[in-house]
């Protein structure tokens, strides 16, 4: 494997993609085990840096990390092989499931099981949201943005409006940037 670093990247990340359940954060532990402890591709500090960047840039954390590790190891081509590897197992599994799920849902007990799963999904989403709320810095601006976003979501729901959450995120980004700008100007004036 050592002679073919690209193949090594591909296989390692396929393994990571195939054996992590429960989304990106579970994957990080496995990535660390494979890339830091076993292969020595990265130091622990480098891995921590990558994690922070992967979490704060958009997109799946697993993809971000794979792209980054691949680049460190073998440049853009390495990125490609690592990302391709991490996506491939889930693609194959989900693709096969998606061929059959609709027919399965015709069976009564499968449909019943999925009605139960629907409730579980709602719980998992609310648990994730509450966890993020706990980690959130409770500044007045953050709380105001949170309330505004929640109210906007409720309004969209109730009046069946077409207002994408993408716009909400963009507005929040703009508000944060202006708040930062105003803060900077004030700080400069205070220094004068």
């Amino acid at each position: 494997m050592k002679k073919f670093p690209l193949l090594d990247l591909l296989v390692t990340f396929m393994k990571i993609g195939a054996f992590t359940f429960g989304g990106g954060y579970a994957m990080l532990a496995l990535i660390e085990n494979e890339c830091v402890a076993k292969k020595g591709w990265l130091t622990h500090d480098e891995f921590m840096d990558i994690t922070v960047i992967a979490e704060s840039t958009p997109g799946p954390v697993a993809i971000n990390t794979a792209t980054f590790v691949g680049y460190k190891k073998k440049g853009p081509l390495g990125s490609f092989f690592a990302t391709f590897g991490v996506v491939l197992p889930s693609f194959v599994i989900i693709y096969l499931i998606s061929l059959f799920l609709k027919d399965f849902l015709e069976i009564t007990w499968v449909a019943s099981a999925f009605k139960g799963i629907r409730v579980a999904v709602a719980y998992l989403i609310i648990a994730a949201g509450l966890k993020m709320w706990k980690k959130l810095k409770k500044t007045p601006l953050n709380i105001a943005v949170f309330i505004a976003a929640a109210l906007a979501m409720i309004a969209v729901d109730f009046f069946a409006l077409r207002f994408s959450t993408v716009y909400m995120i963009l507005i929040a980004a703009l508000v944060a940037l202006s708040a930062y700008g105003v803060g900077e100007i004030r700080r400069k004036e205070a220094r004068k």
Binding site: G129, L136, A149, A172, A176
Partner: peptide, 11 residues
């Protein structure tokens, strides 16, 4: 800055 917005949307 986008974090509180996302938390609101998710909840």
């Amino acid at each position: 800055g986008v974090k509180p917005c996302i938390v609101g949307i998710i909840l």
